[in-house]
């Protein structure tokens, strides 16, 4: 079931075209990633989906409704990239207040425990660290018990441990049946969490696939090195279309190729009952896929 449908979205701020032409759809229960460099138009896209911005062109349907439909606010939780709370509002007060906005709120005590905010309930917003503010922001996006959660730059500002904890939390939320739209410029996050990804660059979708699909779809080379347990005939490997070259380094063999190279190599070895020791893969990452798609690194 499609829960979000975006067709030819377009949005400009004066002369700046933030979103040129973006289309995708999000299926119920998936974690859908929107990946792109800074300024690509990710925030503008999700703010349009959230009903905070009125698009200049295209159509958006969320749960079959127009994003401006106020009844959607009960069903869609949003964590905005830039939004704060009053300095002196405590964590407990914020959660309690925001929970009162919704007809069927989630249990905010459980939520704060999962987010590691349990100790901070009496702390005023201004005294929270960046990571704690971020986690509170996530809690507020989930507090209404949404069907869809839209999370913009979820883990920006978190330390690596907090980031991993947050990923676990997000997977837990998805497992409870919530559809998640995740804006990110972290490759690792996209690779780990997202079922499907839209790569956005300069206001346009340049690729739309699973993370594995994006990597496999590249025509960059991969390299596999191993030490065979018995002699291997190069020709056996070279016969596979994925393999471009076989290079000998003494007892080690290096296979260069594209596509699903690992599968090709291991199946040749398996058929010949050869075991590969010290197997190392220099695999292309989502990073490489990204550079190839957009012509630049996401870190720029």
């Amino acid at each position: 079931m499609t829960v979000i449908e975006v067709r030819n979205l377009r949005k400009a701020y004066g002369d700046t075209v933030a979103v040129r032409d973006v289309s995708f759809s999000v299926e119920a229960g998936e974690i859908f990633g929107i990946l792109g460099p800074n300024g690509a138009g990710k925030t503008t896209t999700v703010e349009s989906i959230s009903g905070l911005r009125r698009p200049d062109g295209g159509t958006i349907r969320v749960l079959g409704r127009d994003p401006g439909d106020r009844s959607l606010r009960d069903d869609v939780g949003v964590q905005l990239q830039e939004s704060g709370l009053p300095d002196k509002l405590t964590v407990r007060e914020a959660l309690d207040l925001y929970a009162s906005f919704y007809p069927a709120p989630a249990d905010w005590r459980a939520l704060t425990r999962e987010l590691g905010l349990g100790e901070k309930l009496s702390t005023p917003y201004a005294k929270l660290s960046g990571g704690q503010k971020q986690r509170l922001s996530i809690a507020l996006a989930l507090i209404g018990g949404p069907k869809i959660a839209i999370l913009d730059e979820l883990t920006t500002g978190l330390d690596p441990q907090a980031r991993r904890d947050t990923w676990d939390l997000i997977e837990g939320v998805r497992d409870s049946g919530v559809t998640i739209v995740l804006v990110t410029h972290f490759m690792e996050e996209a690779e780990r969490l997202c079922d499907r990804l839209a790569v956005i660059d300069r206001g346009q979708v340049v690729a739309l696939d699973t993370p594995a699909g994006l990597i496999a779809g590249m025509d960059t080379e991969q390299r596999i090195r191993f030490r065979p347990s018995a002699p291997v005939d190069d020709a056996l490997l070279e016969a596979r279309p994925e393999v471009r070259a076989v290079i000998r380094h003494g007892a080690q063999i290096e296979v260069v190729g594209t596509g699903n190279l690992l599968h090709a190599v291991t199946s040749v070895l398996a058929v010949n009952e050869i075991i590969a020791a010290d197997l190392r893969i220099e695999q292309a990452s989502l990073d490489d896929a990204f550079v190839q798609l957009t012509g630049r690194s996401v870190k720029e």
Partner: peptide, 17 residues
């Protein structure tokens, strides 16, 4: 003006209130 600057009003706009 602080509420607007901090995005408090924006955050509220994403809720039913």
């Amino acid at each position: 003006a602080t509420y607007r600057e901090r995005g408090v009003l924006r955050r509220l706009a994403t809720t039913p209130v």
